[in-house]
Amino acid sequence: MQGRLWKLLPQDRFAPLVTRVPHPDRDNPPADTPVPRSIGGINIDPVPGTNFNQAPSARNIPVHRPPGAVAEPQFLAGCTRCGDCIDACPYDAIVLAPERLADVAGTPIIEADHAACMMCEDFPCITSCEPGVLTDRIPPIMGTARVTPQLCLAYHHTTCTVCSERCPVEGAITVSDGKPTVDQDTCTGCGVCRYVCPAPENAILLMPAFERPGRPTP
């Protein structure tokens, strides 16, 4: 019924209510710009087919690198996959990335669920890295951790301070009223808190650093 009434109303009655503002690019396109074909204002030009031969753009897969890792593009370009940092780690925290990680495969990573970085004072992994993609000239920040209150035992009337007791970074985890909180400015993302968390479903969310400093100039 409303559609019929609309057709019966004089269309010029509503003309003053609509003012079309000229668009400089649309209304006055450059002379060499091809004009798309359209019907009733709807573009009917065919959509270009997918080029399956085109090489996909490189993706930066976020992974937990050992401490002192430079920016990911420089890391991948400079890492020789020699495994020296793996051999140097006294806690077996550094492993080779699996094949499923494509370009990252074979490079050193840390999987905190199996073994966390203990933040050695002398960082033997950095010392052993001859290519210099692990360096002590940038902060040893691998990521950041966060406590999930819904999963943390301490937030559900259970006494648990394991994460704060085992954390190797002073001040990274504080406990207030029996509940732990991660200081994002102090946390290095070593993963110890996640490794030792006794909750049935791990209460520590551990995220790798998405951006890291570039290789320092000599």
Rank of each mutant, 00 (worst) to 15 (best):
A55E: 09
V63G: 05
V63F: 05
R65S: 01
V70D: 03
P73H: 03
Q74G: 04
L76D: 09
C79V: 08
C79W: 07
R81T: 12
C82Q: 05
G83L: 02
D84A: 06
I86M: 10
D87C: 11
C89T: 12
Y91I: 11
Y91T: 14
Y91P: 08
D92N: 15
A93Q: 04
A97C: 11
A97M: 10
A97E: 08
P98R: 02
E99G: 00
E99P: 00
R100C: 07
A105C: 05
P108K: 03
I110E: 07
E111G: 09
D113G: 15
H114E: 13
H114P: 08
M119G: 06
M119N: 06
F123T: 14
P124M: 06
C125W: 07
C125A: 04
S128R: 14
C129P: 00
E130M: 00
P131H: 14
G132E: 04
T135E: 05
R137H: 13
P140L: 03
P140W: 03
M142Y: 02
G143H: 08
A145R: 05
R146L: 08
R146T: 02
Q150N: 13
C152G: 10
L153Q: 06
A154T: 12
Y155E: 14
Y155W: 14
H157L: 10
H157D: 12
T158I: 09
C160Q: 10
C160H: 08
C160V: 09
C163E: 14
C163W: 11
E165C: 10
E165N: 08
E165F: 08
E170H: 01
A172C: 04
S176Q: 06
D177T: 05
G178F: 07
P180S: 11
P180H: 11
D185K: 08
